[in-house]
């Protein structure tokens, strides 16, 4: 039982979030929709976005999962500070992330010389897009898995270890299956965040069709010349986002 007056501000809040989405749908030229979203530039952007977001999600899983386990299952001095700093990209304006990445991986950046020696040129490449996406999406995965780990507790892990299972076996056979729903929804969120990444990409990676111009950058660019196409592509991103949220919910309720 909740107080009845809560409904009013809740309705205003819901309307505030939903109305702009309705407005996009209302503004779309439905008859031309197919032509607008299937131009070569749009297809290139969509394909690039899906590809880079998938790789970024994979990188997040590869490095974010161990990070979440370390944060949830161990304690060391300064852990609180480390956790806060790892989550920083969550609250950092993406353009700041882009500048930070530029001065890390850029030609004159912290690692620029070493990368150059190795023959790796990150700037203006698809790699730069993936790096930007991984940077902004990582915290979503870490938060999600760390939360799942803490909720699950350590009972089963302790039991498995007491029965003689080695730490790697416990991690593989007990810990991972236990947090699988959190892992799935974390990965879906990371994918969604990667798909929407804009600020860090435009600052760090540049914008070139098929190489670095992802869907959000393509929308930003089209807005100058072809508003109808920009709106149509926006709708595509909205639909993808809705699907992603649906998937994440499904993953969670299956737990």
């Amino acid at each position: 039982m909740i107080p009845r007056w809560l409904y009013a501000p809740a309705a205003v809040g819901a309307a505030f979030v939903l109305l702009p989405l309705v407005a996009i749908a209302a503004r779309v030229e439905w008859t031309d929709l197919f032509d607008l979203v299937t131009s070569q530039a749009s297809k290139d952007a969509l394909w690039l976005s899906l590809r880079t977001s998938a790789i970024a999600t994979l990188l997040c899983l590869l490095f974010g999962t161990p990070m979440a386990v370390v944060l949830a299952r161990t304690s060391f001095p300064g852990q609180g500070v480390v956790r806060s700093l790892v989550l920083l990209p969550l609250v950092l304006p993406p353009v700041v992330g882009g500048i930070a990445l530029l001065y890390t991986f850029g030609r004159r950046g912290l690692l620029g010389h070493e990368l150059d020696v190795l023959g790796l040129q990150v700037a203006f490449s698809t790699t730069a897009v993936v790096l930007a996406q991984t940077f902004v999406a990582m915290p979503f995965l870490v938060v999600s898995i760390e939360g799942a780990l803490r909720t699950a507790g350590q009972r089963y892990e302790v039991a498995a270890a007491s029965l003689g299972a080695r730490p790697t076996t416990v991690f593989r056979r007990v810990t991972l299956p236990l947090v699988l729903p959190g892992l799935v929804s974390g990965a879906v969120l990371a994918f969604a965040r990667s798909l929407g990444e804009f600020g860090a990409t435009i600052t760090f990676a540049g914008s070139l069709q098929g190489v670095t111009r992802t869907l959000p950058l393509e929308i930003y660019q089209l807005r100058e010349t072809d508003v109808d196409a920009a709106v149509a592509l926006s709708l595509v991103l909205v639909v993808v986002a809705v699907l992603v949220i649906g998937l994440a919910r499904q993953g969670r309720s299956a737990a």
Binding site: A123, F124, I202, A205, G206, S207, L208, Q209, T212, R213, Y220, Q221, E224
Partner: peptide, 11 residues
């Protein structure tokens, strides 16, 4: 053959 086509002069 530019490596990037930016949105503004500032970029």
């Amino acid at each position: 053959h530019p490596v990037s086509e930016e949105q503004s002069v500032t970029d």
